[in-house]
Amino acid sequence: MSTTTRTARRSVARRAGESAFGVLLLARYLFMGLLALLIVTAGALASWDTARDAMSPGDLPQGSLTLSACADDGCTGVFEPSGATVRLVQPIGREPGDTLDVAVHQDTGEAIRTGLPGVLYSWLPLMGALLLAAIVIGGGLRMYRTATGTGAAALLALGLTFALWI
């Protein structure tokens, strides 16, 4: 009995096709990875200006804002300690009489909410970007556990934001 093994030689066309398929798979992973990174970066950049002031007001005057009038796009009120009338831009309605901790941009007269609710609210664009990136990670990269973790973290932060905001 002979134990001769025969190796079948693949054709040039088949080897080229397998190489091209590998290159396409690599290109898909690179493209989807860059897309997810771009989405998260855009969300972070959109959040940064407001989040920076909410997390560390620095030289901005800080105090409390007592709301006097509210509309769908924001509220106005008296800022203490200066007594100036400032505007708090927010899509979530408040009632006149509420008092919030804020920092005020003196050149625009707009208030930014500080504290944990203000910080979470300022990072909302990043949270939305993480939700969108979770879809790209799960669907495009086939990294289901990572996508589930990313989406769950973003949903938890969104829920906490609205629980603290109201």
Results as ranks from 00 to 15, higher is better:
1 M>P: 07
8 A>E: 15
9 R>T: 14
10 R>W: 14
11 S>H: 12
11 S>T: 15
11 S>C: 09
15 R>C: 08
19 S>D: 11
22 G>M: 12
22 G>P: 00
24 L>E: 13
25 L>M: 10
27 A>Q: 07
29 Y>E: 06
30 L>I: 12
33 G>C: 01
33 G>P: 00
37 L>D: 07
38 L>E: 07
38 L>Q: 09
40 V>D: 06
42 A>E: 06
42 A>N: 05
44 A>C: 03
48 W>Q: 11
53 D>Q: 08
54 A>Q: 06
58 G>R: 09
60 L>P: 00
61 P>Q: 03
65 L>K: 01
66 T>M: 06
67 L>Y: 00
70 C>A: 14
72 D>H: 10
74 G>N: 08
77 G>L: 01
78 V>E: 05
81 P>K: 04
86 V>C: 08
86 V>D: 02
88 L>P: 00
91 P>V: 13
92 I>F: 14
93 G>N: 12
96 P>M: 13
96 P>G: 12
97 G>M: 04
112 I>M: 08
116 L>N: 03
118 G>E: 04
119 V>W: 12
123 W>K: 00
124 L>F: 10
126 L>A: 10
126 L>E: 04
130 L>W: 07
132 L>K: 05
137 I>P: 00
142 R>A: 04
143 M>A: 15
144 Y>E: 12
145 R>T: 12
146 T>K: 08
147 A>D: 02
150 T>Y: 06
153 A>G: 03
153 A>C: 05
155 L>V: 05
155 L>F: 08
158 L>N: 05
158 L>R: 01
160 L>P: 00
161 T>M: 13
165 W>R: 08
166 I>K: 15
